[in-house]
């Protein structure tokens, strides 16, 4: 599996740390309540197919990336900077 970092180009998967589903970009407000926080921290769509997750380019530029990937084929479809995906 190779991931294309917008800064560094196509790199070996080993340079990246995997964080998990990109839901982390939609953090609820501190007082959003137990249900919202349970959903955010624990409950996952866990899709078989296309998914968006967060990877950190630890062995490279240090950017957080949103990677669109297929969990069934391992194809990497798209990568963007988390800072841009968020705004």
């Amino acid at each position: 599996m190779r991931i294309t970092c917008p800064h560094c180009g196509e790199r070996d998967r080993r340079e990246f740390y995997y964080r998990g589903a990109a839901v982390d970009l939609d953090r609820p407000a501190p007082d959003a309540g137990e249900k919202a926080w349970d959903s955010f921290v624990y409950l996952h769509d866990n899709p078989a197919g296309e998914t968006r997750d967060l990877w950190y380019h630890e062995g490279g530029c240090g950017a957080w990336l949103v990677v669109t990937r297929n969990t069934v084929t391992h194809a990497v479809l798209k990568t963007e900077l988390a800072s841009q995906a968020r705004s």
């Binding site: 998967r13 998990g20 998914t51 391992h74």
Partner: peptide, 9 residues
């Protein structure tokens, strides 16, 4: 990493 491929890298 999340995967349903039943094979790894």
């Amino acid at each position: 990493y999340a995967s349903y491929a039943a094979r790894g890298n």
